[in-house]
């Protein structure tokens, strides 16, 4: 038996049509690339798939077996046949959306997505929302913080129904550099970043960071702490980073 390697060329089918891909590619990305509409909350192509929101369900036939699976973390393989809109997929996705509605009923993103698939209300008990309100526990913020920003200031804590996305002890995330990447990827916009009086506040991580004033234009731009971290990692001197990107570009 030969073992395929990541990146090997494979051929597979979606809804009966044949496509080429690479072994190990995310099936969800392939589906979207070829124009199939599949919903998701926890997927972002920049970071590793996680499989928590259970929305990107499809049916995959591999050999004789056909089963429902999430597509984001399904590696494309030789000979698989994919079906995106079967009766089972629709039925389970409806229940998954109802569960999302009972967990985060106030989230506009969740409500809009559910409505798109015809789910307007949930038969399940609506959970009392704590201050994590609109968080769907997709983990994108911590994956970005870990895999892209490399500071891992936040993480999942607890387990089961006590699972939360938090800074340690839900106190100031001391490792957070205030880059805001988490805010950018959050599918439900629930992290909260504000700037006032020369301070960047990231509410959810209890992080307040003073902003650097540009030595050229006098405008405030990035948190100083973040610039110091850049300097440490890249070796660029701190003085060079005291100028905002706009002014730096104009110098070049």
């Amino acid at each position: 038996m030969s073992h395929p390697k990541k990146g090997d060329k494979v051929t597979f089918k979606i809804e009966g049509r044949t496509y080429d891909g690479r072994y190990g590619d995310s099936l969800l990305e392939q589906l979207r690339k070829h124009g199939y509409e599949v919903p998701s909350l926890c997927y972002h192509e920049a970071v590793s798939p996680y499989g928590s929101c259970r929305l990107c369900l499809v049916e995959v036939k591999k050999g004789k077996k056909q089963k429902v699976t999430t597509s984001c973390n399904y590696p494309v393989q030789e000979g698989i046949e994919v079906f995106v809109n079967t009766e089972k997929v629709r039925r389970y996705r409806k229940v998954v959306l109802q569960l999302h509605l009972s967990k985060t009923p106030k989230s506009k993103a969740v409500r809009d997505l559910a409505a798109e698939y015809g789910v307007m209300e949930t038969p399940y008990e609506v959970q009392e929302q704590d201050k994590d309100n609109d968080c769907v526990l997709c983990g994108l913020c911590s994956r970005v913080c870990d895999e892209i920003v490399h500071v891992s200031a936040i993480s999942f804590t607890g387990r089961g129904q006590n699972k939360r996305m938090q800074s340690p002890y839900d106190e100031t995330a001391e490792a957070c550099i205030g880059c805001g990447a988490c805010v950018y990827v959050c599918p439900t916009d629930c992290i909260g970043l504000q700037e006032s009086d020369g301070i960047r506040h990231i509410e959810k991580w209890h992080r307040d960071l003073p902003l650097q004033t540009c030595e050229k234009c006098g405008k405030q731009f990035f948190p100083t702490f973040m610039l110091m971290e850049f300097s440490k990692r890249t070796g660029i001197s701190k003085d060079q980073l005291n100028i905002c990107p706009a002014c730096r570009n104009s110098v070049v």
Binding site: S52, V95, L99, H100, L137, F156, G160, N162
Partner: peptide, 21 residues
């Protein structure tokens, strides 16, 4: 099981909570 679920995926985490309820 609701107590022991890792809480990663919504069907297990919230689904079990709702079945319990």
């Amino acid at each position: 099981l609701a107590d022991e679920s890792c809480g990663k995926c919504i069907t297990c985490r919230e689904g079990l909570v709702q079945l319990c309820s």
